[in-house]
């Protein structure tokens, strides 16, 4: 495995949704990032930031009607966006797999878990009958589901939320994908179960050497898991950096604002929170200026003159005309 060659190379990805009334929505707007083999990349943002649409575009899971996808998504050397459907179907599930947020709505409620897991094996690895069930049982025990042969016969509603998410991860891992995309995989789960699932993902990534794209709104998860972090706001990446650099020294006011507004378990009590004013729906369209400008404490007049470019700094990409200075203390 070469270290420099990216496994996934997303170049200038854009997704627009046409609406019957009103202007088209630019859900994702010129997003570029790479994922190297074995790397864990975090896409962080609030609702409406475009993080999930990015992952759906990579997987080719967006509806065709009313959606325009632009740019390139290079996996190895194939552009996934132009690949014929049947080739894409081979790659999806085998080379790239996905874990969704809500395990109950991603599993078929009227089909036993076992059938759903073996389906993947049958489709991609041509396993049949006993061989497939045995492999499925092994997968379930691999993700920490006790008594897997019994569980295979059960239906999704008979499993707890954590177990369902494990089953989903087992399905995603069935063909040893080289890239796993996890879209808020723990948001629907309790915190002790979340810790189990994160630990499981970490372990699996380490053991299989798969790359992981972690999509989340939780900065805490990113801090412990991801190598590289991309912070998204209103469809564009506003800051990218290694997790250490990003958390030690956020430069974009949005990143800094997020860190200052989350209560931390280890912060001294009574330390005030510094919320970001406004809400993620108060955005400016990027063509007219920085989308974050209406909420930004560092706003300049120039911020609303036009879209700020994504500049490449040493070890960091930053889309801001008036970033937090490198030494500036973020109010904690």
């Amino acid at each position: 495995m070469t270290t420099t060659e990216p496994l996934l190379d997303v170049r200038d990805l854009s997704v627009t949704f046409a609406r019957k009334s009103g202007p088209t929505v630019h859900a994702v707007d010129g997003v570029s990032f790479t994922v190297r083999p074995g790397e864990t990349v975090g896409l962080v943002g609030e609702s409406g930031s475009g993080k999930s649409v990015t992952s759906l575009a990579v997987m080719g899971l967006l509806p065709r009607r009313g959606v325009r996808v632009g740019g390139q998504v290079l996996f190895d050397t194939d552009d996934l966006l132009t690949l014929p459907r049947d080739r894409m179907r081979d790659i999806r599930g085998r080379d790239i797999a996905m874990v969704f947020q809500d395990p109950m709505s991603s599993l078929n409620p009227v089909v036993p878990i076992g059938v759903q897991v073996t389906e993947v094996l049958e489709r991609h690895q041509r396993l049949r009958g006993d061989k497939a069930s045995a492999a499925a049982a092994e997968l379930l025990s691999r993700v920490g589901i006790p008594d897997p042969t019994r569980r295979l016969k059960e239906y999704p509603h008979q499993l707890s939320g954590g177990m369902r998410q494990r089953a989903l991860i087992a399905m995603a891992l069935a063909c040893q994908p080289r890239l796993l995309i996890a879209d808020e995989p723990t948001t629907a789960l309790d915190v002790t179960i979340q810790a189990q699932i994160i630990e499981l993902l970490k372990e699996l990534v380490q053991d299989t050497g798969a790359a992981l794209v972690m999509i989340t709104h939780d900065l805490g998860i990113v801090a412990g898991l991801c190598d590289t972090v991309h912070v998204m706001y209103s469809g564009r990446i506003v800051e990218s950096a290694g997790r250490r650099e990003l958390f030690a020294e956020p430069r974009h006011p949005y990143t800094g604002g997020l860190l200052a507004s989350v209560p931390r378990l280890d912060a001294p009590r009574g330390a005030p929170l510094h919320p970001i004013p406004g809400s993620p729906t108060d955005v400016l369209r990027w063509e007219r200026g920085c989308a974050f400008a209406p909420r930004c404490p560092n706003r300049l007049d120039a911020c609303t003159d036009g879209p700020p470019p994504l500049e490449t700094l040493p070890g960091r990409r930053l889309r801001c005309l008036n970033p937090l200075s490198e030494t500036e203390e973020v109010p904690a």
């Binding site: 002790t192 189990q196 958390f247 931390r264």
Partner: peptide, 27 residues
Amino acid sequence: KALMSAVPIPDPAVEDTRQRILLQGDL
């Protein structure tokens, strides 16, 4: 103890150095 160690803290320096207690199973 377990509940607290399960809460992720948005600071890599803390996340990398703390010991966790992981609970088995579900409620």
